[in-house]
Design a protein around this nucleic acid. Structure first.
Lengths: 242, 242
DNA sequence: TCAGTTCATATAGCAACGCTATAGGTGCTA
DNA sequence: TAGCACCTATAGCGTTGCTATATGAACTGA
């Protein structure tokens, strides 16, 4: 029940802290747990890391190496915005794979004291956005874009971590991701714009849906279902009190 | 040095906790501090609130009242999306005005345990988005839109709180805000949804009708008919591509 | 070779923490 | 007046982060 291999105590402390942090389902990890698992006593921890936070910072630094490695671990696709998309997804996945570590890294917010890790992550994203800017694909400054995208990325990841694993819906991530990337990109808008000048009445909405259904050929309903659906739609849209 | 007015101990505890929380610049607040300021002893706290977290939850509940009041404290502009914008700004301002309280409310993330406050805030935003949907101004489900917008809103607010007050740049907020609102909106002049996956007018119309039906109480269909009708409507409005 | 110095670890314990077993006081109802 | 429910206090438990002090090991210079 101890990590007393040949490694020096400093390493054993780091590994013990990381391991306990990963296993502790949100519960706080005590220095006594850590030192016991590492097979050392309290003063050793404070000799090497100053205090508990110093140890955690060191663990975070190691975690950040892994994070950065993940963020770089794919060949540039040649499309910077596509790479940003992958960075986003990697960020979310990192958070979901190691939620405790992620919370220490990005969730441990204190007023007026910015974790260094956030600045690093921003720099990483800004670097990638610079390529997009160089390719004329950005309509805002890379730094502002990076801050904005990262803020949303962290917000989404925190939300997903807070949800029960069974209810997690990654569509929240992809939707927010594409919204942010689209907003900073300079791609010329193309395609038809849906018309939605309707008022809030049920009747108007039903009529609009009716017209839209007639025009398109949606196959979400079978023909018999569609027939009945249209009949009800008609009944609603001819309702006197909308 | 104590809040021992005529108020009952329960109230004094609540006020003491709120006051210490507001003043403690990020530092943790102990139960001993709270009980001393309130002029009571430890068991009183645990009698009324169960444990420390229960007391904090009560403080948060009071804070949430204030938050909700702020979110509703403006006359509806008639333009739901403009109201969403104001909700966003109010959210950020609330966080910057009371960072400690905000961090307890939205920053205290633990894996797999969602703060009730988040669900409430989502419901609040979803309510507003329903109006936008009813007006045909949304191209995604109000619930998904609310989750996405709120996630980004929280992320931005946390980032701003973490920054030194002198460096805070609210443009981060407005930029992210407009990006999110634009992404979920179906405004004609605005172009298609991000990524080129524009929703067809059928989907927009179906979402609008759905919202309108929820809002009104049309009796044109029987309850069993309505149930099936809504199910089909859902199938249409979640269709991957019109 | 050996005293002097530095580094690294252990023993033991402090103050503060969240929390509680137990008991006493208060005010209401019967 | 008796009984009961509610509320608060005394005192203290176990755990927390951290440290004053001491001991051993390794290196250094004469």
């Amino acid at each position: 029940m101890s990590l007393d291999g040949q490694l020096p105590p400093k390493m054993r402390l780091l590994r013990a802290a990381a391991e306990l942090l990963a296993k502790s389902a949100g519960a706080p990890v005590s220095t006594r747990q850590i030192t016991q698992l590492a097979g050392v006593t309290a003063p050793t921890l404070y000799h090497h890391f100053g205090d508990k936070e110093g140890l955690f910072d060191a663990v975070v630094a190691a975690g950040f190496e892994e994070y950065v490695a993940g963020e770089r671990d794919f060949a540039p696709s040649g499309q910077p915005l596509e790479d940003i998309r992958r960075m986003w997804d990697n960020h979310v996945q990192f958070g979901l794979n190691q939620p405790e570590l992620y919370l220490v890294m990005f969730g441990n917010i204190r007023p007026e004291s910015r974790p260094a890790i956030v600045a690093d992550a921003e720099a990483l994203m800004e670097e990638m956005l610079n390529k997009a800017a160089a390719a004329g694909q950005l309509n805002v400054q890379p730094r502002e874009a990076a801050r904005s995208i990262l803020a949303a990325n962290v917000g989404v990841t925190l939300m997903l971590i807070a949800e029960p694993a069974s209810e997690r819906n990654l569509e929240l991530s992809t939707m927010t991701r594409d919204a942010m990337i689209f907003a900073v990109s300079a791609e010329p808008a193309s395609g038809p714009a849906p018309g939605g000048t309707g008022k809030s009445s049920v009747v108007v909405a039903a009529i609009a849906l009716n017209a839209a259904l007639q025009a398109s050929h949606s196959d979400q309903l079978s023909s018999s279902e569609l027939k009945l659906f249209l009949e009800w739609l008609h009944r609603i849209s001819t309702s006197p009190a909308g």
